[in-house]
Design a binder for these strands. Structure first.
Length: 255
DNA sequence: ATGCCCGCTTACAGCGGA
């Protein structure tokens, strides 16, 4: 079973690239982030014609997540629990093929310090609380998405260049580590322990041709899922295509 | 030091992204 996460940075701008990648990569489940559209405008018909079932949690203009699957999926959670006043569409979860899969778009948090960084840390605390409940089910769970956290220094081309960024503040990293310490496996890190496997390259300053990237798209596996981990990788070539997202699709295979 | 680029918006300039 192949499960991928892909921050597409806008559905309208990315649809041809998305369809192309889906056809080539053939994931069983694709967790999308930054769909940047209301759910009603997500191209469900086009994707259905291409053979995909869609669960969509969108909002106007920004954010928005979706889960595409070859087999029908059963939605288990829409929106991250823990704050009824939070209207940002950043979490969607479903059961598909016996695996619980979440599509996560964790807040960026810049600039820091400030209210956006506070929101990021509060969101991570809510995610940890929900993740603890998912672990307790004993089911295979995959928390896939754009975490907006650079976990270690070898997950970025040059740590000093990002030192002031919310993505690698000690508080952001500590919250990510706390999540791992619950019992989750960072699948990309496990398969590529030497690091420098990037999932994002900024549009600016020639980041892509210079390979100035960092790793912020993660797939965290509960122990029953981790026991089935076969492979993990990044479809890096997708980042180099015309009209590419600034993120590359990132995936795992479960046996 | 700042912005570079990109996608979005009851758009045509400003915001958010990372």
């Amino acid at each position: 079973m192949k499960i991928a996460t892909y921050n597409i940075n806008g559905t309208n701008a990315r649809l041809p690239r998305l369809l192309e990648w889906l056809a080539e990569a053939q994931p069983d489940v694709a967790c999308l982030q930054e769909i940047k559209t209301i759910s009603e405008n997500f191209p469900v018909e086009t994707l259905r014609d291409a053979g995909w079932h869609c669960l969509v949690h969108g909002q106007k203009g920004f954010n928005g997540v979706a889960i595409l699957s070859r087999e029908p999926a059963t939605e288990t959670q829409r929106g991250l629990p823990g704050d009824d006043t939070d209207e940002q569409a950043r979490y969607l979860e479903a059961e598909v093929g016996g695996v619980r899969v979440a599509s996560i778009y964790l807040p960026n948090g810049n600039p820091q310090p400030g209210p956006k960084f506070d929101y990021k840390l509060a969101w991570m605390a809510r995610l940890a609380a929900h993740a603890e409940r998912l672990l307790a089910t004993g089911a295979p769970v995959v928390l896939a998405g754009d975490y907006n956290v650079i976990p270690e220094d070898d997950d970025v081309w040059q740590p000093a260049a990002m030192a002031a960024d919310a993505l690698m503040q000690p508080e952001s990293r500590a919250a990510y580590r706390a999540l791992l310490h619950q019992g989750w496996l960072d699948a990309l890190r496990a398969v590529h322990p030497k690091g420098h496997v990037y999932t994002f390259w900024d549009y600016q300053a020639g980041a892509w041709p210079r390979n100035h990237g960092f790793r912020i798209d993660h797939l965290l596996l509960s122990p029953p899922a981790a026991d089935r981990l076969g492979d993990a990788g990044v479809d890096k070539d997708v980042r180099g295509l015309e009209k590419a997202s600034d993120h590359a699709p990132t995936w795992i295979k479960l046996g």
